[in-house]
Design a protein around this nucleic acid. Sequence first.
RNA 1: GUCCCCAUCGUCUAGAGGCCUAGGACACCUCCCUUUCACGGAGGCGACCGGGGUUCGAAUCCCCGUGGGGACGCCA
Length: 464
Amino acid sequence: MTVRTRFAPSPTGFLHIGGARTALFSWAYAKKHGGDFILRIEDTDVARSTPEAVQAILDGMQWLGLDYDEGPFYQMQRMDRYKQVIQKMLDEGSAYYCYCSKEELDALRESQMQQGLKPRYDGCWRPEAGKVLPSPPQDIPPVIRFKNPQSGHVVWHDLVKGEISIANQELDDLIIARADGTPTYNFCVVVDDWEMGITQVIRGDDHVNNTPRQINMLMALGATIPQYAHLSMILGSDGQKLSKRHGAVSVMQYDEDGYLPEAVLNYLARLGWSHGDDEIFSKQQFCEWFDLDHITPSAAQFNTEKLNWLNAHYIKQADNEYLVSDITKRLNKLNVVVSAQSNLSAVIDLYKERVSTLNELAANIAYFYQKPVMDQAAAEKHLTVDIKPVIATLVELLKGVDWQAEPIHQVINEVVAQYQLKFPKVAMPLRVMLTGIAQSPSIDQVMALLGKDEVLARIDSALN
RNA sequence: GUCCCCAUCGUCUAGAGGCCUAGGACACCUCCCUUUCACGGAGGCGACCGGGGUUCGAAUCCCCGUGGGGACGCCA
Protein backbone atom coordinates (compact mmCIF):
# COMPACT_ATOMS: atom_id res chain seq x y z
CA MET A 1 0.00 0.00 0.00
CA THR A 2 1.31 3.44 -0.87
CA VAL A 3 2.20 5.59 2.04
CA ARG A 4 0.09 8.71 2.34
CA THR A 5 0.77 11.26 5.04
CA ARG A 6 -0.67 14.67 5.63
CA PHE A 7 0.01 17.91 7.37
CA ALA A 8 -3.19 19.48 8.60
CA PRO A 9 -2.69 22.88 10.18
CA SER A 10 -5.49 25.17 11.18
CA PRO A 11 -5.04 28.61 9.67
CA THR A 12 -5.31 30.58 12.87
CA GLY A 13 -1.74 31.81 12.88
CA PHE A 14 1.64 31.46 11.23
CA LEU A 15 3.59 28.23 10.77
CA HIS A 16 5.67 27.94 13.89
CA ILE A 17 8.59 25.71 14.70
CA GLY A 18 6.52 22.87 16.13
CA GLY A 19 4.19 22.77 13.15
CA ALA A 20 7.17 22.95 10.83
CA ARG A 21 8.73 19.90 12.43
CA THR A 22 5.49 17.97 12.21
CA ALA A 23 5.25 18.91 8.56
CA LEU A 24 8.89 17.97 8.00
CA PHE A 25 8.47 14.53 9.55
CA SER A 26 5.26 13.81 7.64
CA TRP A 27 6.86 15.00 4.46
CA ALA A 28 10.03 12.99 4.99
CA TYR A 29 8.10 9.86 5.85
CA ALA A 30 6.19 10.07 2.58
CA LYS A 31 9.38 10.76 0.63
CA LYS A 32 11.22 7.94 2.31
CA HIS A 33 8.55 5.47 1.30
CA GLY A 34 7.88 6.88 -2.13
CA GLY A 35 4.45 7.95 -1.00
CA ASP A 36 2.37 11.09 -1.11
CA PHE A 37 2.38 14.04 1.19
CA ILE A 38 -0.87 15.94 1.42
CA LEU A 39 -1.53 19.43 2.69
CA ARG A 40 -4.91 19.98 4.22
CA ILE A 41 -6.06 23.25 5.71
CA GLU A 42 -8.38 22.70 8.65
CA ASP A 43 -10.38 25.87 8.52
CA THR A 44 -13.66 24.79 10.07
CA ASP A 45 -13.28 27.30 12.86
CA VAL A 46 -14.68 30.11 10.79
CA ALA A 47 -14.27 32.62 13.56
CA ARG A 48 -10.52 32.19 13.89
CA SER A 49 -9.37 31.12 10.45
CA THR A 50 -8.00 33.78 8.18
CA PRO A 51 -6.76 33.88 4.60
CA GLU A 52 -3.61 35.64 5.88
CA ALA A 53 -2.85 32.67 8.08
CA VAL A 54 -3.36 30.30 5.16
CA GLN A 55 -0.88 32.35 3.17
CA ALA A 56 1.57 32.44 6.06
CA ILE A 57 1.48 28.66 6.29
CA LEU A 58 1.95 28.27 2.56
CA ASP A 59 4.87 30.72 2.68
CA GLY A 60 6.49 28.85 5.53
CA MET A 61 6.16 25.53 3.76
CA GLN A 62 7.62 26.98 0.62
CA TRP A 63 10.52 28.60 2.40
CA LEU A 64 11.39 25.27 3.98
CA GLY A 65 10.94 23.53 0.67
CA LEU A 66 8.29 21.14 1.93
CA ASP A 67 6.39 20.48 -1.26
CA TYR A 68 3.14 18.56 -1.23
CA ASP A 69 1.86 16.07 -3.73
CA GLU A 70 -1.79 16.87 -3.16
CA GLY A 71 -3.67 19.87 -1.88
CA PRO A 72 -3.96 22.22 -0.31
CA PHE A 73 -7.41 20.93 0.48
CA TYR A 74 -9.71 23.20 2.41
CA GLN A 75 -12.18 21.60 4.75
CA MET A 76 -14.67 24.40 4.31
CA GLN A 77 -14.93 23.34 0.70
CA ARG A 78 -15.86 19.81 1.69
CA MET A 79 -18.92 20.70 3.73
CA ASP A 80 -21.32 18.82 1.53
CA ARG A 81 -19.41 15.64 1.96
CA TYR A 82 -19.23 15.98 5.75
CA LYS A 83 -22.95 16.59 5.90
CA GLN A 84 -23.61 13.47 3.88
CA VAL A 85 -21.56 11.41 6.26
CA ILE A 86 -23.27 12.94 9.25
CA GLN A 87 -26.63 12.15 7.78
CA LYS A 88 -25.51 8.60 7.23
CA MET A 89 -24.46 8.32 10.87
CA LEU A 90 -27.78 9.81 11.98
CA ASP A 91 -29.59 7.27 9.86
CA GLU A 92 -27.53 4.40 11.16
CA GLY A 93 -27.87 5.54 14.74
CA SER A 94 -24.23 6.23 15.46
CA ALA A 95 -25.01 9.92 15.89
CA TYR A 96 -27.88 11.81 17.45
CA TYR A 97 -29.27 15.25 18.11
CA CYS A 98 -28.59 16.91 21.44
CA TYR A 99 -30.63 19.90 22.57
CA CYS A 100 -28.56 20.96 25.55
CA SER A 101 -27.74 24.64 25.54
CA LYS A 102 -24.21 25.90 26.00
CA GLU A 103 -25.22 27.31 29.35
CA GLU A 104 -26.46 23.95 30.53
CA LEU A 105 -23.27 22.28 29.41
CA ASP A 106 -21.09 24.88 31.08
CA ALA A 107 -22.97 24.43 34.32
CA LEU A 108 -22.63 20.67 34.05
CA ARG A 109 -18.91 20.90 33.44
CA GLU A 110 -18.39 23.20 36.34
CA SER A 111 -20.26 21.03 38.82
CA GLN A 112 -18.38 17.95 37.67
CA MET A 113 -15.06 19.69 38.11
CA GLN A 114 -16.05 20.73 41.60
CA GLN A 115 -16.89 17.17 42.48
CA GLY A 116 -13.48 16.09 41.24
CA LEU A 117 -14.92 14.30 38.27
CA LYS A 118 -13.70 14.40 34.73
CA PRO A 119 -15.95 16.88 32.94
CA ARG A 120 -18.00 15.24 30.26
CA TYR A 121 -21.38 15.17 28.60
CA ASP A 122 -23.93 13.27 30.69
CA GLY A 123 -25.69 11.68 27.75
CA CYS A 124 -29.12 13.09 28.49
CA TRP A 125 -30.09 13.11 24.82
CA ARG A 126 -28.36 9.87 23.99
CA PRO A 127 -30.90 7.40 22.62
CA GLU A 128 -30.94 4.01 24.31
CA ALA A 129 -33.16 1.04 23.99
CA GLY A 130 -36.10 1.57 26.29
CA LYS A 131 -35.10 5.08 27.25
CA VAL A 132 -37.63 7.88 26.89
CA LEU A 133 -36.01 11.04 25.58
CA PRO A 134 -37.34 14.46 26.57
CA SER A 135 -39.29 16.22 23.86
CA PRO A 136 -37.05 18.53 21.83
CA PRO A 137 -37.35 22.18 22.81
CA GLN A 138 -38.45 24.43 19.94
CA ASP A 139 -36.10 27.30 20.58
CA ILE A 140 -32.82 25.42 20.71
CA PRO A 141 -31.09 24.39 17.49
CA PRO A 142 -29.56 21.01 18.23
CA VAL A 143 -25.96 19.92 17.87
CA ILE A 144 -25.15 16.44 16.64
CA ARG A 145 -23.19 14.07 18.83
CA PHE A 146 -21.37 10.88 18.09
CA LYS A 147 -22.63 7.90 20.03
CA ASN A 148 -19.40 6.69 21.50
CA PRO A 149 -19.17 3.12 22.85
CA GLN A 150 -19.53 3.06 26.61
CA SER A 151 -17.50 0.05 27.50
CA GLY A 152 -14.27 -1.54 26.47
CA HIS A 153 -10.98 0.10 25.58
CA VAL A 154 -9.56 1.71 22.52
CA VAL A 155 -6.04 0.45 22.03
CA TRP A 156 -3.62 1.41 19.34
CA HIS A 157 0.05 0.97 18.77
CA ASP A 158 1.42 4.45 18.49
CA LEU A 159 4.42 4.51 16.19
CA VAL A 160 6.25 6.85 18.54
CA LYS A 161 4.89 6.12 21.97
CA GLY A 162 4.06 2.46 21.78
CA GLU A 163 0.83 0.96 22.97
CA ILE A 164 -1.73 3.38 24.29
CA SER A 165 -4.96 2.25 25.81
CA ILE A 166 -7.88 4.41 26.82
CA ALA A 167 -11.12 3.23 28.35
CA ASN A 168 -14.29 4.18 26.53
CA GLN A 169 -15.68 5.11 29.92
CA GLU A 170 -13.33 8.08 29.84
CA LEU A 171 -14.81 9.28 26.62
CA ASP A 172 -18.07 11.10 26.19
CA ASP A 173 -20.28 11.72 23.18
CA LEU A 174 -18.47 14.45 21.36
CA ILE A 175 -20.16 17.04 19.20
CA ILE A 176 -19.56 16.39 15.54
CA ALA A 177 -21.74 19.16 14.17
CA ARG A 178 -22.39 22.54 15.71
CA ALA A 179 -25.83 24.06 16.14
CA ASP A 180 -25.30 25.95 12.90
CA GLY A 181 -24.68 22.70 11.11
CA THR A 182 -20.94 23.03 10.55
CA PRO A 183 -18.99 19.92 11.43
CA THR A 184 -16.25 20.07 14.04
CA TYR A 185 -12.58 19.21 13.92
CA ASN A 186 -12.62 15.67 15.26
CA PHE A 187 -15.23 14.69 12.76
CA CYS A 188 -13.69 16.36 9.70
CA VAL A 189 -10.36 14.80 10.50
CA VAL A 190 -11.94 11.39 10.55
CA VAL A 191 -13.73 11.81 7.24
CA ASP A 192 -10.69 13.35 5.57
CA ASP A 193 -8.09 10.95 6.85
CA TRP A 194 -10.34 8.16 5.73
CA GLU A 195 -11.32 9.48 2.31
CA MET A 196 -7.89 10.85 1.52
CA GLY A 197 -6.50 7.42 2.25
CA ILE A 198 -4.06 8.57 4.89
CA THR A 199 -1.97 5.63 6.04
CA GLN A 200 0.10 7.30 8.76
CA VAL A 201 -1.18 10.17 10.80
CA ILE A 202 1.87 12.03 12.08
CA ARG A 203 0.85 14.88 14.35
CA GLY A 204 1.45 16.63 17.63
CA ASP A 205 1.26 15.05 21.00
CA ASP A 206 -1.72 17.16 21.91
CA HIS A 207 -3.88 14.93 19.73
CA VAL A 208 -3.29 11.75 21.68
CA ASN A 209 -6.53 12.22 23.54
CA ASN A 210 -8.47 12.75 20.32
CA THR A 211 -7.22 9.56 18.83
CA PRO A 212 -9.53 7.08 20.59
CA ARG A 213 -12.56 9.16 19.64
CA GLN A 214 -11.40 9.28 16.06
CA ILE A 215 -10.79 5.56 16.02
CA ASN A 216 -14.28 4.95 17.35
CA MET A 217 -15.80 7.09 14.63
CA LEU A 218 -13.68 5.44 11.99
CA MET A 219 -14.94 2.09 13.21
CA ALA A 220 -18.53 3.30 13.21
CA LEU A 221 -18.03 4.31 9.59
CA GLY A 222 -16.42 1.03 8.71
CA ALA A 223 -13.25 2.81 7.66
CA THR A 224 -9.71 1.52 7.84
CA ILE A 225 -7.82 2.85 10.81
CA PRO A 226 -4.59 4.58 9.90
CA GLN A 227 -1.46 4.21 11.97
CA TYR A 228 -0.71 7.02 14.36
CA ALA A 229 2.55 8.65 15.32
CA HIS A 230 2.36 11.33 18.00
CA LEU A 231 5.26 13.71 18.20
CA SER A 232 6.17 15.29 21.49
CA MET A 233 6.20 18.98 21.75
CA ILE A 234 9.03 21.40 21.32
CA LEU A 235 9.67 23.55 24.37
CA GLY A 236 11.16 27.03 24.34
CA SER A 237 14.84 27.50 25.20
CA ASP A 238 13.75 28.18 28.77
CA GLY A 239 12.02 24.82 28.99
CA GLN A 240 8.61 26.43 28.94
CA LYS A 241 5.85 25.61 26.55
CA LEU A 242 5.87 27.65 23.40
CA SER A 243 2.79 29.76 22.84
CA LYS A 244 1.91 32.86 20.88
CA ARG A 245 2.64 34.96 23.87
CA HIS A 246 5.71 33.03 24.85
CA GLY A 247 8.46 32.37 22.37
CA ALA A 248 6.58 30.85 19.46
CA VAL A 249 7.70 32.54 16.30
CA SER A 250 6.91 32.06 12.67
CA VAL A 251 9.42 30.04 10.69
CA MET A 252 9.56 33.10 8.46
CA GLN A 253 11.05 34.95 11.39
CA TYR A 254 14.10 32.72 11.00
CA ASP A 255 14.42 33.88 7.44
CA GLU A 256 14.14 37.42 8.72
CA ASP A 257 16.78 36.76 11.34
CA GLY A 258 19.28 35.43 8.86
CA TYR A 259 18.90 31.68 9.01
CA LEU A 260 19.11 29.44 5.98
CA PRO A 261 16.20 27.05 5.46
CA GLU A 262 18.60 24.10 5.22
CA ALA A 263 19.93 24.94 8.66
CA VAL A 264 16.48 25.20 10.18
CA LEU A 265 15.46 21.94 8.54
CA ASN A 266 18.59 20.14 9.69
CA TYR A 267 18.12 21.49 13.18
CA LEU A 268 14.47 20.48 13.33
CA ALA A 269 15.27 17.03 11.99
CA ARG A 270 17.62 16.43 14.91
CA LEU A 271 15.13 17.69 17.43
CA GLY A 272 13.43 14.51 18.52
CA TRP A 273 14.88 12.27 15.85
CA SER A 274 18.33 10.81 15.46
CA HIS A 275 20.40 8.69 13.18
CA GLY A 276 23.23 7.49 15.39
CA ASP A 277 25.79 10.23 15.86
CA ASP A 278 25.00 12.07 12.66
CA GLU A 279 24.43 15.75 13.11
CA ILE A 280 24.77 17.35 9.72
CA PHE A 281 22.93 15.97 6.74
CA SER A 282 21.14 17.23 3.67
CA LYS A 283 17.42 17.15 3.11
CA GLN A 284 18.05 14.37 0.64
CA GLN A 285 19.99 12.33 3.14
CA PHE A 286 17.37 12.97 5.77
CA CYS A 287 14.65 11.57 3.53
CA GLU A 288 16.65 8.41 3.06
CA TRP A 289 17.41 7.96 6.73
CA PHE A 290 14.18 9.10 8.30
CA ASP A 291 12.12 6.59 10.21
CA LEU A 292 9.60 6.67 13.00
CA ASP A 293 11.55 4.22 15.15
CA HIS A 294 14.15 6.76 16.12
CA ILE A 295 11.85 9.48 17.31
CA THR A 296 12.14 10.30 20.99
CA PRO A 297 8.86 10.16 22.85
CA SER A 298 9.91 12.91 25.23
CA ALA A 299 9.68 16.65 24.73
CA ALA A 300 12.65 18.57 23.37
CA GLN A 301 13.90 22.00 24.24
CA PHE A 302 14.75 24.42 21.50
CA ASN A 303 18.39 25.49 21.52
CA THR A 304 19.41 28.52 19.54
CA GLU A 305 23.18 27.92 19.97
CA LYS A 306 22.98 24.68 18.12
CA LEU A 307 20.84 26.21 15.40
CA ASN A 308 23.49 28.92 15.10
CA TRP A 309 26.21 26.34 14.75
CA LEU A 310 24.34 24.58 11.96
CA ASN A 311 23.55 27.86 10.30
CA ALA A 312 27.23 28.82 10.38
CA HIS A 313 27.98 25.51 8.73
CA TYR A 314 25.46 26.06 5.95
CA ILE A 315 26.61 29.61 5.38
CA LYS A 316 30.13 28.31 4.82
CA GLN A 317 28.71 25.83 2.34
CA ALA A 318 26.41 28.26 0.57
CA ASP A 319 27.35 29.34 -2.91
CA ASN A 320 28.19 32.98 -3.39
CA GLU A 321 25.68 33.65 -6.08
CA TYR A 322 22.95 32.98 -3.57
CA LEU A 323 24.71 34.85 -0.80
CA VAL A 324 25.33 37.92 -2.91
CA SER A 325 21.67 38.31 -3.71
CA ASP A 326 20.59 37.57 -0.17
CA ILE A 327 23.15 39.81 1.47
CA THR A 328 22.42 42.65 -0.90
CA LYS A 329 18.86 42.66 0.36
CA ARG A 330 19.96 42.53 3.96
CA LEU A 331 22.42 45.38 3.41
CA ASN A 332 19.65 47.41 1.85
CA LYS A 333 17.63 46.92 4.98
CA LEU A 334 20.55 48.42 6.87
CA ASN A 335 20.43 51.31 4.43
CA VAL A 336 23.62 50.22 2.81
CA VAL A 337 23.54 50.37 -0.94
CA VAL A 338 25.69 47.98 -2.92
CA SER A 339 26.07 48.30 -6.64
CA ALA A 340 25.66 45.26 -8.82
CA GLN A 341 29.28 45.41 -9.97
CA SER A 342 30.68 45.69 -6.45
CA ASN A 343 33.15 43.20 -5.03
CA LEU A 344 30.50 41.85 -2.68
CA SER A 345 31.24 38.26 -3.56
CA ALA A 346 34.89 38.63 -2.58
CA VAL A 347 33.95 40.39 0.62
CA ILE A 348 31.53 37.60 1.45
CA ASP A 349 34.30 35.09 0.92
CA LEU A 350 36.30 36.89 3.52
CA TYR A 351 33.48 36.75 6.04
CA LYS A 352 31.36 33.68 5.37
CA GLU A 353 33.45 31.51 7.67
CA ARG A 354 33.22 33.88 10.55
CA VAL A 355 29.50 34.39 11.11
CA SER A 356 26.57 32.36 12.23
CA THR A 357 23.73 34.29 10.64
CA LEU A 358 23.24 36.15 7.40
CA ASN A 359 22.26 39.26 9.33
CA GLU A 360 25.55 39.08 11.14
CA LEU A 361 27.30 38.73 7.83
CA ALA A 362 25.56 41.79 6.40
CA ALA A 363 26.21 43.85 9.51
CA ASN A 364 29.86 42.83 9.63
CA ILE A 365 30.63 43.85 6.08
CA ALA A 366 28.62 47.06 6.02
CA TYR A 367 31.82 49.05 6.59
CA PHE A 368 33.02 48.13 3.14
CA TYR A 369 30.21 50.17 1.65
CA GLN A 370 29.79 52.99 4.10
CA LYS A 371 31.97 54.93 6.53
CA PRO A 372 32.89 52.75 9.49
CA VAL A 373 31.40 53.48 12.87
CA MET A 374 34.31 54.09 15.19
CA ASP A 375 34.38 52.03 18.36
CA GLN A 376 35.62 54.42 21.02
CA ALA A 377 37.30 51.84 23.21
CA ALA A 378 39.13 50.35 20.26
CA ALA A 379 40.16 53.78 19.04
CA GLU A 380 41.54 54.77 22.41
CA LYS A 381 43.45 51.57 22.76
CA HIS A 382 45.03 51.38 19.34
CA LEU A 383 45.07 54.88 17.86
CA THR A 384 47.83 56.22 20.05
CA VAL A 385 49.95 59.26 19.34
CA ASP A 386 53.17 57.30 18.93
CA ILE A 387 51.72 55.29 16.08
CA LYS A 388 51.00 58.33 13.90
CA PRO A 389 54.49 58.65 12.33
CA VAL A 390 54.49 54.92 11.63
CA ILE A 391 51.17 55.14 9.81
CA ALA A 392 52.36 58.23 7.95
CA THR A 393 55.35 56.31 6.68
CA LEU A 394 53.10 53.44 5.69
CA VAL A 395 50.78 55.74 3.79
CA GLU A 396 53.66 56.98 1.67
CA LEU A 397 54.71 53.46 0.80
CA LEU A 398 51.12 52.37 0.20
CA LYS A 399 50.66 55.02 -2.45
CA GLY A 400 53.01 53.24 -4.78
CA VAL A 401 52.05 49.65 -4.13
CA ASP A 402 50.47 47.19 -6.51
CA TRP A 403 47.07 47.00 -4.78
CA GLN A 404 46.80 43.36 -3.81
CA ALA A 405 46.89 41.62 -0.46
CA GLU A 406 50.37 40.16 -0.85
CA PRO A 407 52.26 43.35 -1.80
CA ILE A 408 50.29 45.30 0.81
CA HIS A 409 51.36 42.78 3.39
CA GLN A 410 54.98 43.23 2.37
CA VAL A 411 54.77 46.97 2.69
CA ILE A 412 53.39 46.66 6.19
CA ASN A 413 56.24 44.31 6.98
CA GLU A 414 58.74 46.87 5.77
CA VAL A 415 57.34 49.49 8.08
CA VAL A 416 57.23 47.00 10.93
CA ALA A 417 60.92 46.28 10.35
CA GLN A 418 61.85 49.91 9.95
CA TYR A 419 60.36 50.88 13.31
CA GLN A 420 61.31 47.59 14.94
CA LEU A 421 57.77 46.83 15.96
CA LYS A 422 55.65 43.70 16.17
CA PHE A 423 53.22 43.20 13.29
CA PRO A 424 50.05 43.73 15.36
CA LYS A 425 51.39 47.04 16.55
CA VAL A 426 50.79 48.33 13.05
CA ALA A 427 47.96 46.06 11.98
CA MET A 428 45.68 46.89 14.89
CA PRO A 429 45.59 50.69 14.45
CA LEU A 430 45.12 50.11 10.76
CA ARG A 431 42.27 47.76 11.45
CA VAL A 432 40.53 50.25 13.70
CA MET A 433 41.00 53.10 11.26
CA LEU A 434 39.63 51.10 8.37
CA THR A 435 36.87 49.05 9.98
CA GLY A 436 36.08 51.00 13.12
CA ILE A 437 36.54 47.94 15.30
CA ALA A 438 39.33 45.71 16.57
CA GLN A 439 38.29 42.51 14.82
CA SER A 440 38.44 41.74 11.14
CA PRO A 441 39.91 39.24 8.74
CA SER A 442 43.54 39.68 7.72
CA ILE A 443 44.11 43.38 7.41
CA ASP A 444 45.95 43.14 4.09
CA GLN A 445 42.99 41.33 2.56
CA VAL A 446 40.58 43.85 3.94
CA MET A 447 42.71 46.64 2.48
CA ALA A 448 42.92 44.94 -0.88
CA LEU A 449 39.14 44.74 -1.11
CA LEU A 450 38.52 48.18 0.29
CA GLY A 451 40.54 49.76 -2.51
CA LYS A 452 43.48 52.10 -2.40
CA ASP A 453 41.57 55.37 -2.51
CA GLU A 454 39.19 54.34 0.21
CA VAL A 455 42.00 53.05 2.42
CA LEU A 456 44.00 56.22 2.10
CA ALA A 457 40.92 58.33 2.68
CA ARG A 458 39.95 56.45 5.82
CA ILE A 459 43.46 56.60 7.22
CA ASP A 460 43.56 60.29 6.49
CA SER A 461 40.28 60.96 8.19
CA ALA A 462 41.24 58.84 11.19
CA LEU A 463 44.56 60.61 11.56
CA ASN A 464 43.00 64.05 11.57
C1' G B 1 -9.64 16.90 40.09
C1' U B 2 -9.82 12.76 36.27
C1' C B 3 -7.40 10.35 32.22
C1' C B 4 -3.11 9.89 29.05
C1' C B 5 2.05 10.55 28.12
C1' C B 6 7.21 11.45 29.38
C1' A B 7 12.01 11.01 32.41
C1' U B 8 20.50 9.67 30.07
C1' C B 9 25.63 15.45 30.62
C1' G B 10 23.19 22.74 31.05
C1' U B 11 20.84 21.51 25.90
C1' C B 12 19.89 17.93 21.55
C1' U B 13 20.74 12.91 21.70
C1' A B 14 23.28 7.36 21.13
C1' G B 15 21.80 3.28 23.89
C1' A B 16 16.46 -2.15 22.19
C1' G B 17 20.02 -7.06 29.32
C1' G B 18 26.39 -8.07 29.14
C1' C B 19 30.04 -4.18 23.61
C1' C B 20 28.73 1.25 29.06
C1' U B 21 34.79 2.63 33.93
C1' A B 22 27.57 5.38 29.32
C1' G B 23 29.24 7.38 23.06
C1' G B 24 28.48 11.88 19.81
C1' A B 25 26.97 17.07 19.03
C1' C B 26 25.94 22.29 20.80
C1' A B 27 27.49 25.36 24.74
C1' C B 28 31.50 26.09 28.29
C1' C B 29 36.99 25.75 29.75
C1' U B 30 42.35 24.87 28.30
C1' C B 31 46.02 24.54 24.70
C1' C B 32 47.66 24.80 19.42
C1' C B 33 47.28 27.67 14.83
C1' U B 34 47.59 33.17 14.34
C1' U B 35 47.97 39.75 12.37
C1' U B 36 43.02 40.98 16.07
C1' C B 37 38.38 38.29 16.06
C1' A B 38 36.59 34.10 14.08
C1' C B 39 37.38 29.39 11.46
C1' G B 40 40.09 24.95 12.12
C1' G B 41 42.84 21.21 15.25
C1' A B 42 43.91 18.71 20.12
C1' G B 43 42.28 18.00 25.03
C1' G B 44 38.95 18.89 29.37
C1' C B 45 34.41 19.55 32.44
C1' G B 46 29.81 17.11 32.48
C1' A B 47 24.31 12.63 32.84
C1' C B 48 21.45 7.16 33.43
C1' C B 49 15.19 11.26 38.83
C1' G B 50 14.47 8.08 43.64
C1' G B 51 13.14 3.33 45.75
C1' G B 52 11.96 -1.56 45.23
C1' G B 53 11.86 -5.96 42.30
C1' U B 54 13.11 -9.65 37.87
C1' U B 55 18.05 -11.57 36.36
C1' C B 56 24.37 -14.57 37.05
C1' G B 57 24.08 -9.42 35.10
C1' A B 58 19.76 -3.36 34.15
C1' A B 59 20.59 3.11 31.61
C1' U B 60 17.95 -0.80 29.16
C1' C B 61 12.35 -5.20 31.68
C1' C B 62 8.29 -4.73 35.84
C1' C B 63 6.07 -2.03 40.10
C1' C B 64 5.72 2.21 43.31
C1' G B 65 7.08 7.15 44.26
C1' U B 66 8.67 11.96 42.62
C1' G B 67 8.97 15.49 38.94
C1' G B 68 7.43 17.44 34.17
C1' G B 69 3.95 17.73 30.18
C1' G B 70 -0.64 17.04 27.59
C1' A B 71 -5.96 16.42 27.33
C1' C B 72 -10.69 17.12 29.44
C1' G B 73 -14.52 23.14 24.09
C1' C B 74 -20.66 23.96 19.63
C1' C B 75 -10.87 25.30 19.12
C1' A B 76 -7.87 22.72 16.08
